[in-house]
Design a protein around this nucleic acid. Structure first.
Lengths: 115, 115
DNA sequence: CGGTTATTTAACCATTAGGTTATTTTTTCC
DNA sequence: GGAAAAAATAACCTAATGGTTAAATAACCG
């Protein structure tokens, strides 16, 4: 029943490396070591600390397997962020031009409920 | 066709004060001074600097009016973030329980297109 | 012009973030 | 038990963040 957010989600995703880790994990769970290996410019402890931030923010879950730690994406951890941005997204002007230009077919903008 | 983002959006929204500014601006445009006045625990220059970060990130626009600066929310500046989070939101498990628990009626989860 | 108002920018300071190397912890394997 | 493997933590350093006060800019007004 945790509500205490040690380090908040907004903070967690503000770092590009951490976003890259999340992105990597969209491809499936990975061992800590494998994750660290992907960031050759960083050391293992460096990556480990990023993983901790992501853990604390509830964006990833860890499964222990002997000495290994399997990190799994927890996309639901982004619920707070999703809600936050949705509020602004709802304020998007009627002409969704800019958004559509930006998204450019990737993820369709939520269709306004025709009432 | 500006693509250069001085300071990125993820960074800009990572600070609670800046999020509070954005939130304030959802209520309509405000003069810099009025915004600063809302944050009594901060000094006016302090708030001014936050405004600069928001400006640089493209999250607000400024309209000059004599000595005043009218800040206006630019929700479209969050397009990048919206796209980013949507990718993860799409990975939400079929059972949207957790989200619904979280959102708790505020903003309905996007209904999966039947069929 | 000189003063006042509104706001930004500069200079500075304390704290935090993110990186490193070294160490510790935990578990497997011989 | 002892070496090896995997990962986390500790201790440390530098740079950046967020805050402050003081100064600079810019526009209005009498």
């Amino acid at each position: 029943m945790r509500t205490i957010v040690t380090k908040d989600v907004f903070f967690a995703i503000s770092d590009p490396t951490r976003r890259a880790v999340l992105d990597l994990l969209t491809g499936g769970s990975r061992k800590a070591g494998d994750i660290a290996a992907r960031f050759s410019h960083l050391t293992q402890p460096g990556v480990s600390r990023h993983l901790r931030v992501l853990r604390d923010a509830g964006l990833v879950n860890v499964q222990v397997n002997a000495q290994q730690r399997i990190y799994k994406l927890n996309p639901e951890g982004l619920a707070e962020l999703y809600e936050w941005v949705a509020k602004y997204q709802a304020m998007w002007p009627e002409t969704l031009d800019a958004l559509e230009r930006y998204l450019n077919g990737k993820a369709r903008p939520k269709r306004r409920r025709p009432r």
